[in-house]
């Protein structure tokens, strides 16, 4: 197995561990954060703060290195413009997130726990992505 696969597997495992430990795999906790007018649950705020503080601190020195350790170049979006598809896509994603409390990571993580909700949500999410592909290409 190439080192690119091992590093991706380890990074994925860290991500899944973080989601499960922080409670993001429980959609009640996520909706508790989104429900600002109800019994507001700040958990998601701490998760996002911990994650963004880590990337904000370490991404800049990494990207300054010129190239990643195991590959020839960084593949990072250099798009700058804020356009209609970005905003409309984000708006639609938010509506779906606000309905059930799942964004893609926690929905996939739920598969590992055998969650029935993920078994409904994930195929629908894949279908939604393919539907976009059918309509816009």
């Amino acid at each position: 197995m190439s080192r690119l696969l091992v590093s991706a597997l380890v990074a994925g495992a860290l991500f899944g561990l973080g989601l499960a430990m922080s409670g993001m795999t429980d959609a009640r906790i996520v909706l508790g954060f989104l429900d600002v007018a109800g019994a507001f649950d700040p958990t998601l705020m701490f998760v996002l703060a911990g994650a963004v503080a880590t990337t904000a601190l370490l991404f800049t020195p990494i990207l300054r290195r010129g190239h990643p350790l195991f590959a020839s170049a960084f593949q990072v979006s250099n798009l700058k413009h804020i356009d209609a598809p970005l905003l409309a896509g984000a708006a639609l994603f938010g509506i779906g997130w606000g309905i059930a409390g799942y964004c893609p990571g926690p929905a996939l993580a739920g598969l590992g726990a055998g969650s029935l909700e993920s078994l409904w949500f994930v195929p629908a999410m894949l279908a939604g992505s393919l539907l976009h592909r059918l309509l816009f290409r």
Binding site: L4, A8, A11, M24, V52, F74, Q75
Partner: peptide, 24 residues
Amino acid sequence: PALAGGVLIGLSSVLLLWLNGRIA
């Protein structure tokens, strides 16, 4: 656990960018 889990998610993203040059 929320903050610790968040840091793990951040470290996952850092690792994938540092080693593979990809966005998590």
